[in-house]
Design a protein around this nucleic acid. Structure first.
Lengths: 205, 205
DNA sequence: GTCTATAAATTGATAGAC
DNA sequence: GTCTATCAATTTATAGAC
């Protein structure tokens, strides 16, 4: 898909909307910006998606799917648990760095007082941690990890360690790394090993 | 300050603005909402604060100060390092739970592409981690913590483990705790001990 | 399908009376 | 200081030509 002229209008609109909504938030995004970015007229937005709310819903659904759907797939491989965890962190960090604005967009919209659309879409999603909880339970029985490890805590901690450094970049880069872009980039590059070691120390017997 | 009628108008406006801006974001917040919440006329907002930008700047400055200014003060006590860390986590979680919308507000605005105001205010702030880095260095020399601990990594990890569960509440509560509010509240209540243990396992020799 | 023109509603900001 | 009335600009959405 190197030639952007070849994709159809509906797709062009959705791509532009993804960019503008995730960069500016729902309230900050303007239909005119999206039309400009898509290289089409504002009226066409309403022709394909009837309202800003409908377009937002499409983008939010895509964004949430991007970050949530593949979370637990890695834990279905035949690798041992520690390898699965390592591959998960690597994989999730990779997705995050390719889509640095998406987590902030999702969390930002969900935390808005008057945004039923986003909250409703979460309720309809079928993401759940049951399969991951089963795997953790089995590892405990095998004696490979600490007895008192809780799957819920474990997954939240891992996601916190992966997501926070990305969404807090605009504050970490100036405050922690004195505005040195390279220092922040280097920090992120080494992030996988850092997280894996923390998780290892969290769960090892 | 139990009788809200007694505080002056300027203060009433700022209090209302803090609420509305942090709940809705800068673009989502409307001057009319703020006036209504303050129980005054919209024109008075412009009388005290000349523009929405000026009012936003006042709120953002307050919010950032609330979360950032007291971060490193605890590490000036005479307690041993592990006790200082424990007290820091306890203290920071307490501030977070009293102001659950502030971290999301700060990070959300800083991640907006076209928001110079917030980014400028961060640059002007004098928050830095130098004193904390010194303390970590001394502990390493004393041999009380691992040799390869980096202060920058340590503080980011701790903040991640504190802040993420709060800003991700709208997704943790439905996805991880099946919409059981009590289960989430209980999880947060036990959060301090969980984080302290993780940090202990991170740094102990 | 895509555009121009315009309606209709919202919203930040000001003027002026009291 | 506080209010009413109103402006001017923005913004979502629609009507209608091609």
């Amino acid at each position: 898909m190197s030639d952007k002229e070849k994709i159809n209008t509906e797709e062009k609109i959705l791509d532009a909307a993804k960019e503008v909504f995730t960069e500016e938030g729902k309230a900050g995004a303007k239909m005119q910006m999206i039309a400009d970015r898509a290289g089409i007229n504002k009226s066409l937005l309403h022709y394909y998606y009837r309202s800003k709310d409908k377009l937002f819903a499409a983008v939010f659904k895509f964004a949430f799917g991007k970050m949530a759907s593949k979370i637990f797939t890695i834990f279905k491989s035949d690798d041992d648990f520690f390898t699965q965890l390592e591959r998960f962190v690597e994989n999730y960090l990779s997705i995050l760095l390719k889509n640095p604005f998406i987590p902030m967009f999702i969390l930002g919209e969900l935390n808005k007082k008057h945004n039923n659309i986003a909250a409703e879409l979460i309720l309809k999603s079928d993401v759940n941690i049951d399969s991951f909880a089963d795997i953790v339970q089995k590892e405990i029985q095998k004696g490979t990890i600490k007895k008192d490890i809780q799957a819920k805590n474990l997954i939240i901690n891992i996601l916190a360690l992966c997501i926070f450094p990305v969404i807090a970049k605009p504050i970490i880069e100036p405050v922690v790394f004195n505005n040195k872009t390279d220092a922040y980039k280097n920090y992120i590059k080494n992030r996988k090993d850092e997280i894996v070691e923390i998780v290892y120390n969290m769960i090892k017997v």
